[in-house]
Design a protein around this nucleic acid. Structure first.
Lengths: 151, 151
DNA sequence: CTAGATTACTTTCTCAGTAAACTATATACC
DNA sequence: GGTATATAGTTTACTGAGAAAGTAATCTAG
C-alpha cells in the first residue's frame, strides 16, 4: 500500500528506468515495423554519418556500447540490406572499415522521421523546453560520472 | 563535427535512454554477481512483498511489463531458488498464485542493499534533491501519458 | 446441459546480444 | 630476425525475452 516512503533518488531512478523501457520498446517496434531496422542498426548509421561516413568495427562497438560479437551482427544485418559496406583497412590489415552507402543515408532519413514522430508524440509533447534542458544537463552529468562503467 | 544542432527534446531523450542503458546494465551485473538474481526477479519479489505476498502470474506479468511466457520463466527461476512458491488458486483452477517465502524476503533485502549502494554511487551522488523531484514529476507525466503503449 | 469462446498459464521456436574460443595481423622484446 | 604478446574481427555456444501455438479450466448462449 502507500505507506513505504521511498527516498526520492530511488523513485527518480525507477521512474526513469521504467519510462526508458517503455519508450525504447515503442521506438524499436515502430522503427522496425516501418523500416525493418533495429534501433542499434540506426545508431550505427547515425554514427557513421556523423563521422565522415567511415568507422572501424571496434569504434562502432564502442560508440554503440555493444560487444564486438554483437557489432559483427549489426553490421552483417545492415550490410545485407545494402546500407553499409565493409572494406579492408589498408593501414592495418586486421581491421575492417565500414562505410555508409547512399541507400544507408536514405534509410537513415526514413528512420529519423519515424523516430522523431514517436518521440514528439510520446515524449516532447509532455516535457517543457526548460525541463528538457535540465534533463540533458543532469543525464550528461550522470553519464560523465560513470564513464567507464561499461566498456 | 559539432555542427548538427539537434532539438533539445531529442537530446533529452537520447541522453536519458543512454544513461538508463548504462545504469540498468550496471545494476543487473552487480545484483546478479552478488545475489544470483536478475533485475526482473527482484522486481517480482518486490511486487509480491508490496501486495500481501501473493499474486497471480498474469498480475506479475502486468506489473513487470513482461510477456506471459517471460513471466513463467522468471517465476521458474526464483521458485527453483526457493524464493517463491506456486500454489493453485482454489477460486479459479486455471490460475496459479505465487507466494513469497521467507528466503525470498531475505533475498529481497540483500538485493535492496546492492541496488541502493549502486544507485547512490552512480546516480544519487550526482543529482540534487530538487532535480530528483523534478525528474520524478516529469517521468511520471510521460509515463501516464503513454499508459497503454505497452500492454 | 453442452458447444463454442475466452482466460490462465506453459511450451516451443526464434532472435538479439554476450562471452569465450579462434584466426589473422601487428607490435615488443631479446 | 624470431618468439611472445596484444589487437581486430568473426564464430560458436549460451541466455533472457517475445510471439505464437498448445493445454486446461471457466464462462456464455442457446
Amino acid at each position: 500500500m502507500g505507506h513505504d516512503q521511498q527516498p526520492i533518488w530511488r523513485r527518480a531512478a525507477t521512474h526513469t528506468l521504467h519510462t526508458s523501457l517503455i519508450l525504447k520498446a515503442s521506438l524499436e517496434e515502430r522503427l522496425h515495423e516501418s523500416t525493418g531496422l533495429l534501433l542499434a542498426d540506426n545508431e550505427a548509421l547515425l554514427n557513421l554519418a556523423a563521422t565522415g561516413s567511415l568507422l572501424r568495427m571496434s569504434e562502432i562497438a564502442h560508440r554503440l556500447v555493444l560487444s564486438r560479437g554483437g557489432t559483427t551482427k549489426v553490421i552483417d544485418r545492415i550490410e545485407e540490406m545494402g546500407l553499409v559496406e565493409r572494406h579492408p583497412d589498408p593501414e592495418d590489415r586486421r581491421a575492417t572499415v565500414v562505410v555508409i552507402t547512399s541507400a544507408g543515408r536514405d534509410a537513415m532519413a526514413a528512420a529519423r522521421k519515424v523516430i522523431d514522430a514517436t518521440l514528439e508524440e510520446m515524449w516532447a509533447a509532455h516535457i517543457s523546453t526548460e525541463e528538457a534542458e535540465l534533463m540533458v544537463e543532469v543525464m550528461d552529468r550522470v553519464l560523465k560520472a560513470n564513464r567507464g562503467e561499461l566498456e
